[in-house]
Write a protein that binds this DNA or RNA. Structure first.
Length: 468
RNA sequence: GGCGACGUAGCCAAGCGGUAAGGCAGAGGACUGCAAAUCCUUUAUCCCCGGUUCAAAUCCGGGCGUCGCCUCCA
């Protein structure tokens, strides 16, 4: 079964084939590092991390590049606000980004290029565009002439004429047409700047992604991804400038994720309704956050709410519980394969198949999770110590493997109980052994008050942390 | 004004022409010393109105509603 991808360019689901068999180039538009990101931003990074993981699962080697925009108006303003240099600001928030991304199990890209470290590539691209008549200079600024690129608007479905008719852009006087955009911006007093043929200045926003994507991944890039808010104008402009410069296609598949909404409105820095990962981590684990973020299809809007995260956490808990149970069974099972094993083995293959079918269909993580839940019901229903260790191991390995594709269930939970808590558990066991239920219940309540929930199973007592 | 997305059970959410997955929460039952976990049972005129079709949540047309992009934005 082929993998199918919804390509924003054309708005159709298409069969995915890498330009070079077995190798996939993936460029994800990264953050502007002027402040801490919010979980809406991270939806994109988690989603495309999952995409990359699945492509790898499917046997592709994935070359991932994700940039940092470390120079633009917001960077300059914020640095001034904080009284620090732009490079310091960038460094600070790049570190914050990685801390959050690592926690959410977003794998690092092969390269995380920064705009300021690719000025030569950017200048070269600007020069080519100017030479080919796609750019014009006004003072120290260089603009891309949108109407010089016939395909302008093909990604977003915008029509140049309409764009201008309805433009409520505050028109930059120096631009010939409202849809034109800056490739290079002249330095204003006090701003960081680099030398260029047009005088001292800095790159425009759109050009950096084109320059860095092509620098590291060549062209066309297989997949170029980002949030839906980047479709226009950012990605439209990237296409225009890149294709005008190279006379060839820039990207084969464009992928865009839907927004994360807060109270029905898009979570965004400018609206001020944001929630950061570190804030959310006071109440939920990174794994629960990740589960939540992939619990809907990536192109659908997703609402945030504490109760929604709570529901997601409940679902994840179910998966974690079955893994614990598999471990307990494993400890007591025999080595010899049994008939019960054989009966179940077919189910494993089916679960894998369902999972793959879901992910093949434009990375339907919600459906993929459903496959794991269906497997879980059957495991809980049918697996026992009548199964052999090898089979139980196989089941656990499947959870780890498929969960791993989603960035979940990767690490063991190996937390140990404090020794005094352990003593309480043992004391309760002793009380239970002599059927002193009052004492046992008293201790259980005591543990509950200290955040530990007990479950008495056929395999012995099991404990877990309660959510406070 | 232009472009676009979405509307499925109390909540979340799959579904891409063949008769409604899955999760969370609730109710009942089984298991349990009691719980918890788990299992079983249980809940949908798929926003409305037309149309196409043997057959539509799925396609087409028209409404209504919500949200987004067109300015920095994942």
């Amino acid at each position: 079964m082929p993998i199918e991808v919804h390509n924003t360019l054309g708005r159709r689901r298409e069969e995915f084939t890498p330009g070079k068999p077995g190798e996939v180039t993936l460029y994800v538009c990264g953050p502007t590092v002027y402040r801490e990101l919010h979980i809406g931003n991270f939806r994109a990074f988690v989603v495309f991390d999952t995409v990359a993981r699945y492509l790898e699962y499917r046997g592709h080697r994935v070359h991932r590049v994700q940039n940092f925009t470390d120079i633009d108006d917001k960077m300059i303003n914020r640095a001034q606000e904080l009284g620090i240099g732009v490079p310091e600001l960038a460094q600070r928030y790049i570190e914050v980004y990685f801390a959050d991304a690592d926690a959410l199990r977003v794998r690092r890209a092969e390269v995380h290029p920064r705009a300021t470290e690719h000025i030569p590539e950017i200048l070269e691209l600007c020069r080519v565009l100017q030479d080919k008549g796609h750019a014009y200079q006004v003072g120290g600024d260089l603009y891309f002439a949108a109407d010089s690129f016939p395909g302008y608007g093909k990604l977003s479905g915008q029509d140049l004429a309409q764009l201008e008719a309805g433009a409520r852009v505050e028109v930059d006087e120096r631009k010939r047409r409202p849809a034109d955009f800056a490739l290079w911006k002249a330095q204003k007093p006090g701003e960081p700047a680099w030398d260029s043929p047009w005088g001292k200045g800095r790159p425009g926003w759109h050009i950096e992604c084109s320059a860095m994507a092509m620098r590291y991944l060549g062209h066309p890039v297989d997949i170029h991804a980002g949030g839906a808010d980047l479709i226009f104008p950012h990605h439209e402009n990237e296409i225009a400038q890149s294709e005008a410069a190279t006379d060839g296609p820039f990207v084969r598949y464009w992928m865009h994720n839907g927004y994360l909404n807060l109270e029905g409105r898009k979570m965004s820095k400018s609206l001020g309704n944001v929630l950061t990962v570190s804030e959310l981590r006071h109440s939920f684990s990174p794994e629960e956050i990740r589960f939540f973020l992939i619990s809907a299809h990536y192109r659908s809007p997703l609402n945030y709410g504490p109760e929604l995260l709570q529901a997601a956490a409940g679902g994840l808990e179910r998966l974690r519980t079955v893994l614990t149970r598999l471990g307990e069974l494993h400890a007591q099972a025999g080595e010899i394969p049994t008939e019960a094993d054989q009966a179940f083995r077919g189910r494993l293959a089916a679960a894998r198949q369902e999972f793959e079918a879901a992910m093949d269909a434009d990375f339907n993580t919600a459906d993929a999770l459903a496959a794991l839940f269906e497997l879980t019901r059957e495991v809980n229903q049918r697996l026992s110590t009548a199964n052999s260790r090898p089979l139980l191991q196989e089941v656990a390995a499947l959870y780890r493997e498929l969960g791993g594709v989603l960035g979940l269930l990767e690490e063991e939970q190996t937390e140990e109980l404090d020794s005094d808590l352990q003593r309480l558990v043992q004391a309760r066991e002793r009380a239970r052994a002599v059927r002193d239920w009052a004492e046992a219940d008293r201790i259980r309540a005591q543990l509950r008050d200290r955040g530990v929930v007990l479950e008495d199973t056929a395999q012995g007592v099991r404990w877990k942390r309660s959510r406070s």
